[in-house]
Structures are given as structure tokens and as C-alpha cells.
Amino acid sequence: MSEPRQVNRAYQSQLRRNWWLKHGYYQRYMLREATVLPLLFFCGCLLTGLYSLQHSEQSWLNWLAFMATPWVIGLNLLTFFASLFHAKTFFELFPRVLPILPAPLMIAGQWLGTLSVALLLALLLGGVL
């Protein structure tokens, strides 16, 4: 054992691009992260809506028609459920990061808050329209 030893050849495996496909837990994580994609589409819709509103009446009507097409409705429904899913995961993680109250209480509180804001908006916007 006196001869100088070469560098120890430890085997290092590399994570490939598809690392997240290897495990159910990682897949669910990626699903959570992917909820941003339909949300991006929805934000695009909103921005286009704003733009067309200040551009001309025709473009506003075109936008309304666009929003009513079945595939856009479908995509926005997807956004809705994706956001709900993301909210669920987020609400469950939150009490672990800021452990102020018992977790179930904090989770319920967050849902209650979401529901209240949604109701308030519905009332406000419903009243305007």
C-alpha cells in the first residue's frame, strides 16, 4: 500500500433532464409548478382584454367573442382548477413556514379568506354589471 494511490474513482451519477419523471413525488411537485402555465394564458387574456378595451369597441367585442369560444373557456376552466390545486398545496405548506397557529386552523383560515375575497368581488362586480 505504499505506492502513491490514484485519485479515488468515486462514481457520480448525473441528474438528467427527465429526473422528475422518475418518481411520483417529483411528478406531483412538477404538476404543482406547472399550474403556472395555464395561469400565464389567463393573464395574457386579461392583458389583451384591457388593451382592446382602450383600443376600440370593435376590438373589445372581438375579445368578448374570443373569450366565449369553447377552447378558451376550457383553458380558463383548467386555469381555475389548477389555481385551486395550487392554492390547496400552498395553504398546506404555509403553516409549516410560519407556524403561528395550529396548522388545521391556519389552513381553514386561508380558505375562508379566499372564499370571502371571491364573494366580495362577485358582489362588487355583480353589482356593477
Binding site: 413525488y25 411537485y29 409549516r96 413556514v97 407556524p99
Partner: peptide, 19 residues
Amino acid sequence: VGFCSDVCPKQLDPAAAVN
């Protein structure tokens, strides 16, 4: 990702600590 907390044999919830 949160998997660290799942595999922790002592249920420390390292993900919570990091966040």
C-alpha cells in the same frame, strides 16, 4: 419540493426549517 421531509426518519420537517 418537500420530499426531504417525507423521507426524514426523525420527522424533523427540514423543508419547513429551510422555508
